Amino acid sequence: MEEPKPRRRNVAKAEAEEKKNEVVENHEEEHESKDDGDKMSRLTLMEEILLLGLKDREGYTSFWNDCISSGLRGCVMIELALRNRIELDKATSRRNLVSRKVILKSDEPTGDVILDEALKHVKETQPPETVVSWIEYLSGETWNPLKLKYQLRNVRERLAKNLVEKGVLTTEKQNFLLFDMTTHPLQNSVMKAKLIKRVQEAVLQRWTNDVHRMDKKMLSLIVLSHASDVLENAFAPLNDQDYELAMKRVRQLLELDYEAETKKKANASHDVMWAVFEAFSK
């Protein structure tokens, strides 16, 4: 009559073990989710744009996309401004937004090689240049041979390597008949899915009609994703109704009077962002 007791103890022990494993699994999932969130917060604006533009399996951007190069340089200027390294000089009644000069606010390194390279150029350039000029110089699209030294080279490859180090992409070699090419296929699909979801939510569930209440990095991501011709990749999964609404709201952002927006809330660093938007609206 005493034999069932060990059996009950074994059942109880098994249940306890199962609950323990469940707690451990949940903790691991929470930890992984937190890690992904931390990684997302560490991605630069340039890396997010590149990630949206990369083909997941192929590991490279479209050969037909000739907009992403200058778009990434616009990201560099905005990222430096959001990190309080640069700002625009004071506005005057005689000069419009894109005529104002970019001036150094702090030369403290950012820790990002591409940003620090651009920051060094800004620091060493006198007289100061405009946002439009800097986008041209950094992308190498200038007719002035004396300014070619400012070109940021191999930006996409360097950004891709950053994303490899952050565990988002991986590295492969692909043969294209006449040549071999290093590619960077997607490794962490969860992180890209979260990025796409954040962009979608910004113009759908989290939309606000007051552009000044939007997170400045997200606002920049939307506008420069459009300028870089990669925004469509974030909206492609949406149903027709949400897609139309999302594009309608993006158009609202693109049709803003950026000059007027600088006067609503004066901020010399944020003015760099508005100037970049204005540069791409021409």
Rank of each mutant, 00 (worst) to 15 (best):
E2C: 08
E3D: 13
R8Q: 15
R9S: 09
N10K: 15
A12Q: 13
A12L: 14
A16M: 14
N21K: 15
V23G: 00
V24R: 11
N26R: 12
N26P: 03
H27W: 12
E28I: 11
E32I: 02
K34C: 00
K34R: 15
G37N: 14
L45P: 00
M46D: 01
E48W: 00
L50T: 07
L52Y: 04
G53P: 02
D56N: 11
E58N: 06
E58K: 10
E58H: 04
Y60R: 13
Y60A: 07
F63M: 13
F63A: 15
D66G: 09
G71E: 03
L72K: 03
R73Y: 07
G74N: 06
C75G: 09
I78E: 04
E79R: 02
I86S: 01
E87R: 14
S99G: 11
V102D: 00
V102E: 06
I103E: 03
I103L: 06
L104M: 09
K105H: 14
S106E: 00
T110Q: 01
V113H: 13
V122P: 02
T125I: 06
T125F: 01
P128C: 07
E129Y: 10
V131T: 14
V131A: 13
W134R: 05
G140I: 02
T142W: 03
W143P: 05
K147R: 15
K149D: 09
K149Q: 10
L152T: 06
R153V: 08
N154F: 10
L159A: 03
K161G: 00
K166R: 11
G167W: 05
G167Q: 06
E172S: 10
E172F: 08
K173S: 13
L177A: 15
L178A: 11
F179P: 02
F179V: 07
D180C: 05
D180G: 09
T182N: 05
P185D: 05
N188K: 00
S189K: 09
S189A: 11
V190Q: 12
M191W: 07
A193E: 15
K194H: 09
L195W: 01
R198V: 04
R198I: 03
E201M: 08
E201S: 14
A202K: 04
T208C: 07
M214P: 00
L219Q: 09
S225C: 07
S228K: 00
D229Q: 12
A234P: 04
A234H: 06
F235Y: 13
P237H: 02
L238A: 04
N239W: 08
L245S: 05
A246S: 06
A246L: 02
R249C: 01
L253I: 07
L254V: 07
L254Q: 11
E255L: 12
L256R: 13
D257Y: 01
Y258H: 09
E261D: 06
K263M: 09
K264W: 04
K264T: 08
K265M: 11
K265R: 13
A266H: 10
A275F: 05
F277P: 03
E278I: 00
